[in-house]
C-alpha cells in the first residue's frame, strides 16, 4: 500500500506554489518598507542640509546666527570622546569576554553574571547617564569632562562589546584549542596565540558597531551635563566639551527655520562619521575572515 498518492500531489502543487510566492512577496514588502523609510529620511536630510554644508561649517564654532553656525567644537569633541570610549570599553569588554569564555567555570555565579550582562544591553541609555552622573561626575568629581562622559558611554556600550566578543571567541573551533593544549600550551598562550587572532575580526566588528552607537547617543550626555555652546577646543580629557548629537539636538530645538537646515547639515556630518566607522568594520571583517 502506498502512502503518497502522486496524482494528488500533482493536483495540490499549484496551491502550494501560490502560497510560496505569496509569502515571498510579503517578505519582500517588509524589506522594502524599511528601505523606503531610510531613503525618505536620507532624502529629506540631504535636501535640507546640503545647502548649508561647506568647509566653513566644519571649521566654525557654534553661533547665534544660523549662517555662521559651525560644527567644529562638536566634531572635535566627539573625536575626543571616542579616544576615551574606544580603549576603555574595548579593553574592559574583551577582558570580560575572555574571562567569561575561557577562565570562568560554568556555575551559578557565572550564569548570573552572564544573564545580567545580557540584560544591561537592554537598559535605556538615560539610565546609564544617571549612573555616570552619580559615579563619575559627582562621586569621583570628574565634572562634566570628556573623561566623565567617556566613562559613562563606555559603560553603556560595554555589554554589547562583551556579548559580541564572547560570540567571536565561542566561534573559534574547539579543535584549535585542543591542538594547542595538547602541546603543553598554557591557557594564556592559547588565548594570545590561537584564540584572539581567530576571534579578532568578530571582536573588532562588534566593537566598532558599539562605538558607532556611542557616537550617536544623546541622552547620557544631557544627563551628565555636557554643554552645547562651546567656543574653544578641548585640550585634555579633563576639559568640558560638546558632541555631535548634542549640537544637532540643540539646533533642531531652536525656533528659527534656518537652524533646521543647520541641524540637517550636522546630521549629514554625523551620518558620514557613522558610515565611515561601519565601512571600517565591514573592511576588517572581510580582510581578516579566516577559513577553518
Amino acid at each position: 500500500m502506498r502512502y503518497i498518492e502522486h496524482d494528488i500531489v500533482v493536483k495540490r502543487m499549484n496551491g502550494r506554489n501560490v502560497v510560496n510566492k505569496l509569502f515571498k512577496s510579503i517578505f519582500l514588502l517588509a524589506t522594502l518598507s524599511a528601505l523606503l523609510a531610510l531613503v525618505i529620511l536620507l532624502y529629506q536630510i540631504v535636501s535640507q542640509g546640503a545647502s548649508h554644508l561647506s568647509i566653513d561649517f566644519l571649521t566654525n564654532f557654534a553661533s547665534r546666527f544660523p549662517a555662521e553656525a559651525g560644527i567644529k567644537a562638536a566634531l572635535v569633541g566627539s573625536i575626543w570622546l571616542m579616544l576615551v570610549v574606544a580603549p576603555t570599553s574595548i579593553i574592559l569588554g574583551v577582558g570580560s569576554a575572555i574571562y567569561l569564555e575561557e577562565y570562568a567555570g560554568k556555575n551559578r555565579i557565572t550564569t548570573f553574571i552572564q544573564m545580567n550582562i545580557s540584560n544591561l544591553a537592554g537598559v535605556p541609555s538615560v539610565v546609564f547617564g544617571l549612573l555616570g552622573l552619580t559615579i563619575f561626575v559627582r562621586a569621583l568629581a570628574l565634572g562634566n569632562s570628556i573623561l566623565a562622559a567617556g566613562f559613562t558611554m563606555s559603560l553603556l556600550i560595554l555589554p554589547v562589546i562583551i556579548v559580541a566578543s564572547q560570540e567571536a571567541i565561542r566561534s573559534v573551533p574547539g579543535e584549535l584549542r585542543d591542538a594547542s593544549y595538547g602541546m603543553g600550551a598554557t591557557k594564556w598562550q592559547t588565548i594570545v596565540r590561537i584564540i584572539l587572532p581567530a576571534a579578532i575580526p568578530g571582536i573588532l566588528t562588534g566593537s566598532i558597531l558599539a562605538l558607532s552607537r556611542a557616537i550617536g547617543e544623546t541622552a547620557p550626555l544631557i544627563v551628565v551635563g555636557v554643554p552645547v555652546i562651546i567656543q574653544f577646543l578641548p585640550e585634555g580629557v579633563m576639559d568640558t566639551f560638546t558632541a555631535l548629537p548634542m549640537q544637532i539636538y540643540d539646533w533642531s530645538s531652536r525656533p528659527q527655520q534656518e537652524f533646521q537646515q543647520v541641524a540637517a547639515a550636522g546630521i549629514i556630518v554625523l551620518m558620514s562619521v557613522l558610515l565611515l566607522m561601519n565601512s571600517v568594520a565591514v573592511f576588517i571583517r572581510n580582510k581578516f575572515e579566516k577559513r577553518y
Binding site: 602541546m183 603543553g184 587572532p197
Partner: peptide, 20 residues
Amino acid sequence: SVEELRTRVGMVFQKPNPFP
C-alpha cells in the same frame, strides 16, 4: 603540571586540526 605532561606526550586528533 599538565603542561609538562603534554610536552612529553604529543597528540594527534581525529580531524586534522592545523592552526589557521
